[in-house]
């Protein structure tokens, strides 16, 4: 019975559900995990790379982390190709706002605009919804550091720490347990590594399977932010310093 309503994004089923939107959300919960943590000094975004191969030619650029504008970065879970379209759109919107008002767009406003696009595809006929959830890390002078998520339905919400993608409920439980309000950026990075090490299937944790980014305030220029997508060596060093590998070894013994 429900099959009849499966193929249409814009039609409610008799139970009042939109199957295509739910399927898109389901697709995301199989994608690589991405987690975000807010700290007093900035925001951390960390993602799991699902597809790794020795033969894959890595040009060093991140595949799931994107810079949106001077004050925002985001992580993607789901179909990266769909994300590309939305990110392109967001970047244009951010620059357009900057051009008319000569001010950076407030984080929530930019997110609202992406979500309007996402929502549109759940209502206007014939198309499938965007198969992506985002984690946004942002800074603006009104609310300072912020962390948001958005999903294919076009809903968004603000968080102190959250995760999207595979195993997100396990990750959230761990975050709920270990999150504190007075975390430093370094603590937040370590927490992110710790949570990922426990939620990822892979036995050994290294930079091949991880992407890492931080958003913090510049020490040189007041009110300016630093958006850093980490290099492989830096990620490996962080993993080593956080000591999660040692814990793993203990567990195995």
């Amino acid at each position: 019975m429900s099959r009849r309503y499966d193929s249409r994004t814009t039609i409610f089923s008799p139970e009042g559900r939109l199957y295509q939107v739910e399927y898109a959300q389901e697709a995301i919960s199989q994608a690589g995990t991405a987690i975000g943590i807010l700290s007093t000094e900035g925001v951390v975004l960390a993602c799991e790379k699902k597809f790794t191969s020795k033969l894959l030619d890595n040009d060093g650029s991140a595949e799931k982390l994107y810079i949106l504008n001077d004050n925002m970065i985001c992580a993607v879970a789901g179909m990266t190709a769909d994300a590309g379209i939305l990110i392109n759109n967001v970047r244009v919107q951010a620059q357009q706002y900057l051009k008319t008002y000569n001010e950076q767009i407030p984080c929530e406003l930019l997110i609202k605009r992406i979500c309007d696009v996402k929502q549109g595809y759940t209502q206007h006929g014939g198309l499938r919804p965007f198969g992506v959830s985002f984690l946004y890390a942002g800074y603006d002078d009104r609310y300072e550091f912020q962390l948001f998520t958005s999903n294919p339905s076009g809903n968004y919400s603000g968080w102190k720490a959250t995760s999207i993608g595979a195993n997100n409920s396990a990750a959230q439980t761990l975050l709920k347990k270990d999150y504190k309000d007075d975390l430093s950026l370094k603590d937040a990075c370590n927490l992110a590594i710790k949570v990922l090490s426990k939620t990822m299937d892979a036995s050994s944790l290294n930079s091949d399977k991880l992407e890492f980014a931080t958003l913090s305030l510049s020490k040189l220029e007041k009110g300016k932010t630093v958006r850093k997508i980490w290099k492989d060596e830096e990620i490996d060093l962080l993993i080593k310093e956080s000591g999660v590998l040692d814990e793993k070894k203990d567990d195995d013994e």
């Binding site: 008319t100 008002y101 000569n102 001010e103 407030p106 406003l109 009104r142």
Partner: peptide, 17 residues
């Protein structure tokens, strides 16, 4: 924008634009 008001410089840029 939930009663977030534009700053004078943002207003000026908008008018100029």
């Amino acid at each position: 924008e939930n009663d977030l008001e534009l700053s004078p410089s943002a207003v000026a840029s908008f008018v100029r634009n």
